[in-house]
Structures are given as C-alpha cells and as structure tokens.
Simulated assay, not measured.
Amino acid sequence: MRRWVSLWFPHWPAEHWRRPSDAGSPDQARPLALIACQRIGRAQGGLRVVAVDARAAAEGIAPGLPIADARALLPSLQVRESDPRADAGALERLARWCTRYTPIVARDGSDGMLLDITGCAHLFGGEVALLAGLTQRLQGFGLTVRAALADTPASAWAWSHAGPGGVLPEGSSRTAVAPLPVTGLRLPDALTGELMRMGLRRIGDLLALPRAPLAARFGETLTRRLDLLLGREAEPIAPLHPSSPFRRHLACAEPIATRADIDRGLEHLLELLLGDLDRAGQGLRRCGFSVFIVDGGVQRIEIGTARPSRDRRHLLRLFAEKLERIDPGFGIEAMLLEASLTQALPPAQVALDDGQREAEETALAQLVARAAALGHAAIGIADCNTLAGVVRMQPS
C-alpha cells in the first residue's frame, strides 16, 4: 500500500520569505499582511488584504479586510505587496528540498505539496518520526504547516486541511475522515454549499449513501472525489522530476561544512550506489549529487559518462571537478546521490588482444567524460569510438 504526506502552508505568501537568520531583525517579529497591486486593489473598491502571516491572523486580520481597517485594528502591522510569481518559485524550491525525504514530490496548488513516502519511512525512523521531523524542520524555517500522512493523496489532504493532521494508520482512512466536514473533499465551493444546505455536512454522511443517487443528484465530481479519497481510483500526480530506482541518501549527525567531509560523504554514497548498480547489471551514464543546507537551500551538481561505468575512481574524478561549486553555507545536513540515467553493463570479457582494445576504449571514454565535465559537451560516444580507431592505427 502506498503512503502519502500532504503538507499545507495556510500562510504561505506571507511567510515563505522569512529566514531563521533574520530572527533578530525588527520586522521579523511584526505581524505581516500582503496586498495586491494597487491597480487591482482599487478596481475592487480599495486596497484589501490578500494574505497574512500567523501573527496577523491571531490579531484578527484576515484576507478581504480593507487595509485601512487592518491598520486601524493593528497599528504595528507591516504591509507588503504580494508577488504570486515569487510565491510559486519559493514553493518549488521548498519542494525540491523535500526530495531529501522521497524522490516523488509534487506541488499541490499554490500553498501545499504531496510526497509519496512509500518505502522511505524506515530511513527516518518510521512514519511518525518522519512526519515529526519534517514538520519540525519546516517550522524552523518560519513556516506555519499542517502535515498529514495517509493511504491516498485525497485522504492525506483531507486530514491536513480539515482534520487535526498527523499519521493515519494503514487502512484507517475511511473511518478517520468520516467525521470531517465535506470541505475536506476539495469540492467546488458551489457544490460544497449545496451539500451543506441539504444537511450533508460531514464526509461520513456521504459515505453512508448509495453511490447511484449521489451521482444522479450531484454529478460525477462528488463520486470521483469519494473514489480518490478511498483509493478506488488513482489520483494523477505530477512529480517535480522522474524518480530513479538507484538512489542513496545520507543524513549527517551534525551539519558539515568542509570539503573533506563532503568528499567522504560522496565516496560513501557512491560506494553504496555502485553496489546497487552492480547487482542490477547496470552502469552509470548520468548521476546527480545534491546537498541540503540547514537553511532550506538545495545545491546540485551532475556528471555524465560517455559509456556506462562503475569505475569508482573515474566517477570520483568527474565529481571532484565540480564539487568546488558547492557552497555549504551554514552547514550541510543531508546528501543525496541518484543515478538519473543508467545503461546495461555486462561483465567485462577478455579479448584475444588481452583486453588492449577494451582498455583503450575505456580510457578514451573516460577522457571524453572529463572533457564534457569541463564544458566540452559536444564530445560524445561517437567521437570516442572514432578516436579509439585512430589510436589503434598508430604505429607502435
């Protein structure tokens, strides 16, 4: 059974720009409200609040309130202009940071994301520990977050948005979500209002009714949402990037910042990854190394090889030429190594020339890969084979 985490940031537009390192600044402690651009705000009858942080919400400031009324209610309120494009970019960066927990991460609307943690929880001490650690880290970034873990994306979403959040044990979604309001089904507002006017206020009220009358009265939108909730239908998810079956993760006991520590971590991960590739009969063609910084940043470098390879020394040389680009900042807390492209690599065979031709081609392929790593990306395997032929034609 698959397991999903839903993350919801109810005050995302007003909170994502804050950083823990800004904790001492005067504005960091002041409540914040965002307004839309002036042209749009005045067209709607004056500037109005479009988003608030948790501090402003606690003081009674809410979206839709005229900004003049908000300032009268809370004189210390700081006001900024909203920037939806920046909000979306920041959410995508945070989603990439979340790949330290699972390779399958997708944005969910403008203020949330979904993580498929199937098979990953044991790496973090189990589901409860994973969700607690993830929530704690996100809160450390200055974010208000509601997190839930369940059998389906829809049930996790309902538990995070309309429920208390936390971990729902496997197979418990139907019973757990029954008392939740129908807003947990993520229905259009008009349909939600119609259900509530008819007295169908909780998800359990709908689950107790026959399917055919529900579909006839309210349409397929409602029955489909119920099917997604209960796992009768798979919910389409668009991850940030395709998942790789060859992936190794390392969590640092303490943040590291020296090149020597980064090298040791990479060597350890590469040893494990090459073992996985060897057992699968695969060689590495393209590989990415990501480091996760304590302030929520992610840095990534990639290498490519002209031929499938499991040559540890050669791969480490390719990485060494790019590791200088990594800035550990306040420290690296986790590392990730994944083979984004692999190719079958059969066992080496001894040729009649005692392996001289194979050794020549391998050496030239490694030279091509190093040249590409230095910026000569136009060199490819065809060039490598041509060069190999030229070398063999030279007189000894």
Rank of each mutant, 00 (worst) to 15 (best):
I117R: 00
P103T: 03
A129F: 01
A106N: 05
F141T: 11
I104P: 10
T135N: 11
T118F: 02
D108L: 14
L131I: 09
I104W: 12
V105T: 09
C120T: 07
A95Y: 12
D116N: 07
L114G: 13
A95R: 05
W97C: 13
F124Y: 12
L138M: 12
A132Q: 08
A132I: 01
R96G: 14
L138G: 05
I117E: 00
F141N: 06
C98Q: 13
W97Y: 14
Q136V: 07
D116W: 02
M113K: 13
F124A: 05
T99F: 12
Q136G: 13
L138W: 11
T118G: 01
F124E: 06
L123Y: 02
A147I: 07
L94Q: 09
G140W: 06
L131S: 05
A121N: 01
L143E: 03
D116T: 02
D111R: 12
L138V: 08
G133R: 06
L138Y: 06
D111A: 15
G133N: 07
G109T: 04
D116G: 08
G109Y: 03
L131A: 11
A148E: 07
C98V: 10
W97P: 06
R100F: 11
D116K: 04
Q136H: 10
D108K: 14
A147P: 05
Y101W: 13
P103L: 05
V145D: 06
G119N: 03
A148W: 06
Q139N: 15
Y101K: 07
G126L: 00
Q139G: 15
L130A: 04
G126C: 03
